[in-house]
């Protein structure tokens, strides 16, 4: 499980996750992830390289979204693979956190 973050020109922060968002993966990245989330109000979480998402990963994403939402910020999930998108849909998470496929769209929406 790897995590990276960088500030985009618009001011939004792009968090890139890669690997498996399962129990083991979440234990490895969650602390750093929630720390970055705490410090930013416009967040794009790039899921392009997340090959597996299970309920512990959903828990982590929902926790982050609740925290950003409580500060009136925005969080958007970017470009999940078809199977990861299916997990987001089956769990109803895609009705709580916006999911978009295109980075430019994500940046525009997160800054709106």
């Amino acid at each position: 499980m790897k995590i990276s973050s960088n500030k985009l020109q618009s001011g939004a922060v792009l968090i890139g996750l890669s690997g498996r968002l399962d129990m083991q993966g979440v234990m490895e990245f969650d602390q750093e992830f929630q720390d970055i989330v705490q410090k930013n109000n416009a967040i794009i979480v790039d899921l392009t390289h997340v090959e597996f998402l299970a309920s512990m990963g959903l828990r982590s994403l929902i926790l982050a979204a609740k925290s950003v939402h409580a500060r009136s910020g925005q969080i958007i999930l970017l470009n999940p693979t078809p199977m990861v998108a299916q997990v987001l849909q089956a769990s109803g998470t895609d009705t709580l956190i916006m999911v978009v496929q295109d980075k430019a769209d994500a940046e525009r929406l997160v800054m709106a």
């Binding site: 299970a54 309920s55 828990r59 929902i62 979204a65 089956a90 769990s91 109803g92 998470t93």
Partner: peptide, 22 residues
């Protein structure tokens, strides 16, 4: 129950929901 907003979304408890769907 299915949450309608982030404020009332439970944190966790989705594991068996996924098993039933997959």
């Amino acid at each position: 129950p299915r949450a309608h907003s982030l404020d009332d979304a439970p944190v966790g408890g989705l594991g068996l929901v996924l098993v039933r769907r997959f």
